[in-house]
Design a protein around this nucleic acid. Structure first.
Lengths: 164, 164
DNA sequence: TTTACTGCAAATATTTTGCAATATC
DNA sequence: GATATTGCAAAATATTTGCAGTAAA
């Protein structure tokens, strides 16, 4: 599932197309970062990505990471998520296309859920707007928290954080 | 539409209930901030809210604004959004319940869209998860950008920002 | 009277920017 | 060779935290 529906090669190809169309340069950093993202499972934040790049290949500056993520989003290869925490998360778009997210408001856990995207897409026919991609975030209570609640042990994220 | 489906009084009541249940204090700041949010149209960020509070009522510290927004989210009165920009936006939950969001990837504009929430909710029956609320973000191209594209004037958000 | 909450200011975290060096075209 | 892109470090922005003072219960 690491690279979702597309292979790493396909991703590189899409990036190349995008860069050529836009007249941008094919730098080693851009391809390296893309490849690292493909090999990371699921969601990631900027810092995690940077460490992953450093561990596996070579050093890339913070600025380049930010630049490249923006570029990859623009190229339609990566999408941004903001779940309950403060940290912005990213994900390969081709992976994101295979699921939605169920977020527990009580422990902050995030679960990927298979939901028929076509069915949902069919529901929104918006006048004067051409949809390209959609994100559905479902907030609620996971089974672990439901269980805890039964035994009067329910804690919200706020309360958990205050304990620190 | 300022307060969505609920009146300001109803909101205050919900807050009171929540504070009493949790054994938290009914401070002037909490009620003032809630009231300001009710009177603001649509989305807002922390800084805008702070200014609005200052203009209309009295000074509230930044820390208190952050604390209170967290608390209001916990109370189920406010929801958080992260659209394309870096700035986190908030919205009254009762208002958010009346629409979803169509976000233009090319100019960053955000449109509220009426979509049958019940229909969407019916589509996700998740095992071992109790849904309470969901957000649907539809990314695509608005009519203005579609028009611009026709005349080879298409610009992405990235390109627009670089011009600054 | 107790202590949760606020204001203030400093600390931390996150993202952007300016500029010289470098690598792509 | 021209210049887009990088690395670096500093600046800007956003959020959290510690602590003394204030006010809710």
């Amino acid at each position: 599932m690491s690279a979702g529906m597309y292979s790493v090669d396909k991703m590189r190809e899409i990036l190349t197309c995008y860069l050529e169309k836009k007249g941008l340069r094919k730098t080693v950093e851009r391809y390296t970062i893309l490849e690292c993202i493909c090999h990371m499972q699921g969601h990631f934040d900027v810092e995690t990505l940077r460490k992953h790049v450093a561990e596996n290949h070579f050093r890339v500056s913070q600025a380049a990471v930010y630049n490249t993520i923006e570029l990859l989003m623009d190229a339609g290869l990566v999408v941004r998520h903001q779940f309950s925490s403060q940290v912005v998360q990213y994900e390969l778009k081709s992976a994101a296309l295979t699921h939605h997210h169920a977020i527990c408001c009580y422990c902050g856990s995030i679960r990927e859920v298979k939901i028929d995207r076509v069915k949902i897409a069919a529901d929104y026919k918006i006048a004067r707007f051409t949809p390209e991609y959609h994100s559905l975030y479902i907030y609620g209570m996971c089974s672990k928290c439901k269980f805890r609640e039964k035994f009067q042990m329910k804690k919200t994220i706020n309360e958990q954080q205050k304990q620190k």
